[in-house]
Design a protein around this nucleic acid. Structure first.
Lengths: 195, 195, 195, 195
DNA sequence: GACTAAACGAGACGGTACGTCATGTCTTGGG
DNA sequence: CCCAAGACATGACGTACCGTCTCGTTTAGTC
């Protein structure tokens, strides 16, 4: 239990949101390089001190800004068919990555190489929840006998999600719906048993 | 036809190599963030001018340093079986990425998000040659009837290579030999026809 | 007629004294530079608001703190001999300036250059009363025929007090008793008629 | 003999002078408080780095700026009469202190209380040379029998110069020619023997 | 063997952003 | 209405690199 703070001026919610929104806009518009704390402060009409008070690093701020804009927007579906669930989720994810959020995520992924704390934050807040759902769903599919024999959940997830993220590395575009469907056809053929 | 330069002191090969080696070492040791031109110059015992004379940007220098260390080390194999060729090449690539070169490449991939010229340089010098070989090999396999029906070469390559690069994005480790084999089993099952 | 304030919590005398004493201690210990409002508030266990409510500027607070510590400690003597009176008063003043109060005064004199309100406050509360007494005493001495011919009171006071304060300007120490006596010998020889 | 530097781009004299002049102007116009390194850099069209490269502190820069504007303008006279020498030098000094240079010096004297290095710099570069000349001249006068008996050089100098500097402490004006003459009459009467 | 001309090391230059600090104002809940 | 606590916008601090520039010094080939 954290000791609840009772004295002093409370944190300004207005300022917090202005900062997160300015940060997200800068991230989208100018990439992680142009994402300077001073620029965020100026754009948000906030002081640098306020930013440093609440976010320990550029990394934390970037991740928070991303999630402030993304929220719980992504569904983690659950139908009868594991293949349908993964296809739906990945298709939706691809759509998100093709938009502003994708630009922001790509920008952060760049910064993540230079800043391990950003990599870790992204891993624990973005990747890990999806991964947990994926492993669980894949395991249930295995128990239901829906996977081809010898398919390990980890490897299957790598094959399903890897092709989606890779273009972000080399500055390419996230694949469009047709390309996603095409690679999912292949990946699913390798993973799921056909009745 | 550019007029051939005949007079003046010729470029110092010693200096060029010292710079490339210092750059590579810094890239590996401190990531793209710690990869400062001033630091490279100091480590190489060179002047900043010399670096800026021969490399237009950090990006170019980084890429050159990477290839100076990597050379033509990667084989693009050619046996009777497309599947065997891809598995061999990807397994070898995974081994390279797990070493120093992988660290350097990961560092550059980070910088590439902030610096489009680096992304482009990496794309054209690293990714594209491999991709060309991959497309050609995949096309020949298709013509030989080795692919499952409906498999497009682009999508197949995405499924083969994507899982390898993705961990670089989130700060993870490049998969080890067993993990590579496991995901290749799945990917190949989706791509190649079984006799 | 000011309307007497009847409602609300009355001003805390405890807090007022804690602030003045903390201010004086900081002034002595760390000079005008280290004399930060935040530091005073922290040392006094007070809020910054309380300080700003009651003192309009650092200058006012410093002067108040100085006089809170000094009070009416300095006698303005009155014997038969003007020379004796001035020597006594200046000797006593020198002793005071060599102690904590001198350190505080010196600190404020520094701030006074940057802050005219402080200079003015010091002038009107510290210098002017002494000066008034000095002019009056000197005038009476002139009327009594105790001054050398042509000696103007203002100039005489400048010669008497100037050597005392000057070392504060250049970071030197206030002169000790012997040095004070030595310069007073000279100054008095120039001012007072010898019977 | 300092080792002469032979490599690298030589220091820009243009930049050095622009900085010193901007610093002096700011010192005169806005006091030591408004004398910010950033403001100097902006006004001089220089980078902050350049200032920090050549001046270790605000203090050093201020003192250098003052002397750059003052140069060897002050004569240290030498005639037959010690009294005439001192009167000439002090009268000239008073004139200087009443002008821009006086404003700058006053500003620095304020800063000196907060910054001991400034006090020291001023002491060693401004006060000490004058003091050395004063002690030497006074000693020669003593040997020539020109001083009243019992007059110590240090005390005599304090009486001569103290009244000139003291007004700087309390924000007052440096005395005008008439006031200087009046106090010098008194001081000299106490110091010099009359034939 | 002197001359020419480009490359070299060194490092100073004007800048930008960093993360920290103190200022003076404000906004709470509690006394 | 006062108080403490502390968040807020502002703006200077001193540092680290950026990419450009100007030096004096090699180090070839050409006359």
């Amino acid at each position: 239990m954290t000791k609840s703070r009772v004295t002093g001026r409370p944190r300004s919610e207005t300022s917090r949101e202005a900062i997160l929104e300015a940060a997200f806009r800068l991230l989208v518009a100018r990439g992680y390089a142009g994402f300077a704390i001073e620029a965020v402060a100026a754009a948000a009409g906030a002081g640098k001190t306020t930013i440093y008070r609440w976010w320990r690093s550029k990394a934390e701020l970037a991740v928070d800004a991303f999630f402030h804009a993304t929220q719980a927007e992504l569904r983690l579906p659950e139908t009868g068919s594991a293949e349908a669930d993964f296809r739906a989720q990945i298709t939706e994810l691809a759509a998100l990555l093709r938009g502003e959020r994708g630009r922001a995520l790509a920008a952060m992924l760049g910064g993540a190489r230079a800043d391990p704390t950003l990599a870790q934050a992204l891993g624990s807040r973005w990747l890990e929840p999806r991964r947990r759902w994926g492993v669980a769903r894949m395991t249930r599919a295995a128990e239901a006998g829906d996977l081809r024999p010898g398919v390990e959940p980890d490897a299957a997830l790598a094959v399903l999600y890897g092709p989606l993220y890779t273009p972000l590395l080399f500055g390419g575009e996230v694949p469009g719906p047709a390309a996603v469907a095409a690679y999912l056809d292949i990946a699913c053929a390798g993973i799921f048993a056909r009745s």
